[in-house]
Computed example of a mutant assay.
Amino acid sequence: MSHQEFRRAVELHDRELISAALAPDVVVHSPVTARPFTGKDVVTKLIYAARAGVDGFVYTDEILADGVAGLIFKGKIKGRPAEGMDLVRLTDTGLVYDLTVMIRPLFAGAAFNEVMAPVVAELLG
């Protein structure tokens, strides 16, 4: 596996492929909450829902280093332009073990928070 499998899974918005690209103990640092999300099942749901919340989602660029990929994206959230980055850290076998999501500008982050609020509330219990 590699960052490309994760990228493809997100681009295709495929829940099974997203899950297959994640390490069992994966951690996501979300722009919506300071508390990280952990575990493959929770993170799969979160990524799948987040991808659904960005219309016209497309990765535009990659920044690569050993075991790390910065995947730059753009799209629209609630009809407003947004861009951001998925900072992906990979295990030796190429599975995602840590993901930090960043979104800009501020209004896009606020719109993303609105879109994700029900999912986050469910996942946080």
Rank of each mutant, 00 (worst) to 15 (best):
H3N: 14
V10Q: 01
Y59D: 05
A49G: 10
V32Q: 04
I103V: 15
D25S: 05
E114M: 07
F73Y: 14
F73C: 04
A49W: 10
D66Q: 14
G84K: 02
E11A: 15
D14C: 05
L95C: 06
G39P: 12
P36W: 02
V68M: 12
V68C: 07
I18L: 10
A50G: 13
V101Y: 04
P118F: 02
D66I: 10
G75H: 07
E5G: 10
A23W: 09
R51Y: 06
F107C: 09
V54C: 10
M116L: 04
A52C: 05
E114I: 07
A82M: 12
S2L: 07
R89G: 03
D98S: 13
K76C: 08
F57D: 12
G84W: 00
G125R: 10
R7S: 12
V32W: 04
P105K: 03
H13Q: 14
G79W: 08
I77H: 01
F107T: 14
H3T: 12
A21N: 00
G67C: 00
S19W: 05
G67F: 05
A9R: 01
I63D: 04
E16K: 10
H29L: 13
A121L: 11
P24R: 09
A49V: 02
I47K: 05
P81Y: 09
Y97T: 09
A49I: 07
M102L: 11
I18H: 10
V10P: 00
G53V: 09
